[in-house]
Nucleic acid binder design. Sequence first.
DNA 1: CGTCGCGTTGATCACGGTCAATATAGGTGG
DNA 2: CCACCTATATTGACCGTGATCAACGCGACG
Lengths: 236, 236
Amino acid sequence: MTHSECSTCAIRHRALCGALDAEELQHLNGIARHKHLVAGEPILTHLDSSISFASIVSGVVKLTKSLQDGRTQIVGLQFASDFIGRPFQNEANYDAEAATDVQLCSFERAAFEKLLVRFPELQQQLLKFTLDELDSSRDWMLLLGRKTAREKIATFLAMVGRRSLVDGCSAADQLNFAKFDMPLTRTDIADLLGLTMETVSRQLSKLKNEGIIHLESGRRISILDLQKLDQIADNL
Amino acid sequence: MTHSECSTCAIRHRALCGALDAEELQHLNGIARHKHLVAGEPILTHLDSSISFASIVSGVVKLTKSLQDGRTQIVGLQFASDFIGRPFQNEANYDAEAATDVQLCSFERAAFEKLLVRFPELQQQLLKFTLDELDSSRDWMLLLGRKTAREKIATFLAMVGRRSLVDGCSAADQLNFAKFDMPLTRTDIADLLGLTMETVSRQLSKLKNEGIIHLESGRRISILDLQKLDQIADNL
DNA sequence: CGTCGCGTTGATCACGGTCAATATAGGTGG
DNA sequence: CCACCTATATTGACCGTGATCAACGCGACG
C-alpha cells in the first residue's frame, strides 16, 4: 500500500508505464498503490471489481469465465508486466484471481482513466498491449478448437518453459532446456486447455515416459527437449 | 475505388470514424478508398497484407488461422462497421477473407497510422473496438473449450439471429423470431465452432426436428424460438 | 498418525470424428 | 425450360479420443 519509487521498479520498462517519461511517470506514481495477494485471492469479479486497474509486478494471474453449471474456462494468463482491468466499462466480463502469490501496482478507476486521456502515449501503449492480448487469444482459439490433448499440453509446456527462460534469466544458451515451478494446478491447466485434469495428468505422464519432460514432486517440472515439444505442439 | 461522401455512409456513426467530427473526417476521407470484394476473396494474409486497414461497409469477413496439416479455426467474424487490420505490426498473425460479398472502406498503412497519432479520439475509438473484440474472443474461448456441440450451435445461431434483427431492421417486436441468409457454409460454421461439418449438419437437423429452427433451401434459416436457443446455449 | 488437498492410474463410456453413400440446390449450356 | 454437373449439405455406420467414475498414492500439516 506504499508509494514506492517507479525508477527502481522491476517492470518499469516492460509494463504500461514504460511509455511514459520521468516527468509523466510522477503522475502515474501518484495514483499507484502496491498490493500483495496470496494465491487464490480474487482480484476482480464480473460483479465486484475492487481493484480497477493494475500492472502485475510479480506472480501469475488467471482470468476465468464459467457456465452456470460450473464448467470453467481460463480465458487468459497474465504474467509480470501485464495489465489487468477493463477500461471504458465498469465491469469486466470475466473474473481475475491470483494463481500464485501476486504483487500488483494498482490504480483507481477514475484517476487512471483521466491519465489515459491526458497522456496519449499511455493510451497508445494500452492499445498495443490489448492488440497483443488479442493476438494471443486468437492463438488460443486455434488451440482450443483444433488441437489434440497431446498438442495442447505440448503447446502449453513450451509456452511456460520459454517464459521461465526469460524471467528466470537462465544461462541456458542451448535454449532446449528449462526448469521451473508450474504456477498452475492440474485443474487449472485443464481449465486453460479445455480438458479434464485426468487427461492433463495422463498426457504429462506420457511425455515423461518419452523422456521429453521430467516431473519431480508435483509442481517442479523440467523440460528436457523443448524443440521436441515445439514439434508436437504444431504437429510438424 | 472512389472518394464517396462520408456523411452519407451507412456505417458513419457505428464505425471507427464515428469518433471524428466533420472537420477531422475530411482527413480520413482523403485517404479512404472503397473496394468491393466477392465471396472467397482474400483480404489479408499473414504473408501479404495488400489491404492494410479497412472498415467493413457491408458483408461478412472471416479471420482464420491454420495448422500445417490443414486444420483450420475461424478466430473472428467481422460484420458491417467492424475494423480490419493490425496496427503497430507489419503483418497480422491470421488471414482475413470475404465470407460473403464485401464492401470495404480501406486505408493505406502509413497514412492511417499518421492519423492515429494526430487524432487521439481515433486512437481511443480503436482501443474501444479492440477491447470489445477481446471480450468477444474470450466468450468464444469459453465456447470452444467448454461447450457441447449442441450448445455451440445454439450460441452461434442466437448470435447471428440477433445480429440480423439489428441489421435487417425487422419489425419483429416479439424478438423471439428471426429469418436470415446464413453468411457461412457448413464448413465455415464447423471451423468457427471447432466441430466437423457433419456434426454441424446433424445438430441443425436436430434443432429443426425439435421445431426450434426452420431450414429452407440450405442457406435460408428461420429461428422460430430464439429464447429456447438462448437456454440451450447457456445450459439453463 | 490421521486427514485433506492434489495428483496419478485404471476401467468404461459417450460425444463427436471419420469414412462413405446419398440428396439437394445453384449454375451452365443445349 | 430442362438436363446435366458440381458444390454443398444430409444421413448412416462405425470408431477413437478424451470424459466420467472410481480407487489409490502421496505429501503437507495439524
